[in-house]
Write a protein that binds this DNA or RNA. Structure first.
Lengths: 225, 225
DNA sequence: CCGGAGGTGATACCGGGGTATGAGTCCGTT
DNA sequence: AACGGACTCATACCCCGGTATCACCTCCGG
């Protein structure tokens, strides 16, 4: 099964170079070339490639927007190619935008030719890959973003009992004492008692600070309801 | 300048294989081998390698914990090697733990030998790299984690005024109304007025829910004080 | 068998937080 | 000049949330 590749880049030389390089591979077919984002989206729709090599900086419509359009599910269009972003310099804003848009990879154009070929195969297989410098940033960001949560979050919870931890989580979900009581089938006073102990154990003042603690400690995580 | 490498793996055969492979490179020196995490940490401290190849699963002390100890800044120890994690299967729990601990990469042992060598050089250079399947997951996670926050987060804040947004952030830092008033040089009642408006605009009930909103909307982010 | 930890709950107090209403100043736009 | 929006603050009210104290029950390990 050959891999169908679409090349989108505003520089003719670059297009030609990549096309020659990839077409020389027995398992890769270059099914089209586009010189700006708009044309790239069009060709992407009509030639349904497996992989789109997309330059970031282009006239008319940049690679980011083109990638979004190809990767977003526009009603009616079924086909969804993998997108491999290419750039001359590595500007992290672009990287994050592209990854958020659903790109499968991000490579620098100065990478060895073999890397490009390998990248196309990896992406076609459903995996992903990034230039080393990009990987470094992504990891750093990832590690910084949520450094808390060790394996057993209970350990971070200065000796909270299971029940107390449960109450803490409900507070972090925004419930009132009454609602928590209803939820756990308890008297409201019991809930208060638990909260009081949690506050003292964690050395905090009120439920607002409990919510903060819950997020910082990873008891709850942004974006999971 | 040669790259000093320490190999930590409980299987003697694997150690020998990697050692032979790497030592054959003119720019790489294998400065030590350890067969469990504890020994790995010791040798890491004494031989100050540039790169540590660390198996994940090991007796005595697993690779994750060993990586943490090598990467954490224990008072007195200056040296901080790069850690490249290795695993036979790719279990994502391990991956995230390792990256959070500060590892520079994560490779599967079934990768081609050339990849391993290239990986050592990349990591030694301060960049990072991940196995393609791992990259895919990390990207997916990254994209899922925070698809919200476009450039101007103020837009997400249902028409909050600057002052209101300011108050919201202070609430999300755990301040009481009195403290907020002091902080902004305002009467406490003014703070209350602002909060009242914010609550109504965001359709929330109390400050605890405001804190939740702040975290969910990215007004504040876990782990940045 | 006893003691401690975890869980439950009642009574009581009070202060901070949230609500309602009204009003003053300082903008920028019309 | 007139107007609306943002920001400011006062007075007043009420209730939820947090604190304190005491008590009872169950389970488990010594």
């Amino acid at each position: 099964m050959t891999i169908r590749v679409l090349i989108v880049d505003d520089q003719a030389m670059v297009r030609a170079g990549f096309a020659a390089l990839l077409a020389a591979q027995s398992d890769i077919d270059v099914v089209g070339q586009a010189e700006d984002g708009r044309q790239g989206v069009e060709l992407g729709r009509s030639t349904h490639p497996d992989v789109v090599l997309m330059d970031v900086r282009m006239p008319e419509m940049d690679g980011l927007e083109a990638a979004r359009r190809l990767l977003d599910p526009p009603p009616g269009v079924i086909h969804r190619p993998k997108v491999l972003m290419l750039t001359t310099f590595d500007v992290d804003d672009y990287v994050y935008e592209a990854l958020r848009a659903g790109a499968s990879g991000f490579l620098l154009k100065d990478a060895p030719p073999d890397d490009l070929i390998a990248a196309v195969r990896i992406v076609a297989a459903g995996d992903a890959l990034l230039a080393p410098s990009v990987t470094r940033r992504l990891i750093a960001d990832f590690a910084k973003q949520r450094p808390a949560q060790r394996k057993d979050p209970a350990l971070k919870l200065n000796g909270l009992t299971p029940r107390e931890a449960e109450v803490l989580e409900l507070i972090a979900r925004g419930l009132s004492n009454q609602e928590i009581a209803a939820h756990l089938v308890l008297a409201e006073q019991t809930v208060k008692t638990h909260i009081g102990r949690v506050l003292s154990k964690l050395d905090l003042r009120d439920r607002a600070q409990l919510v903060i603690f819950a997020y910082e400690a990873g008891v709850v995580v942004p974006g999971d309801q």
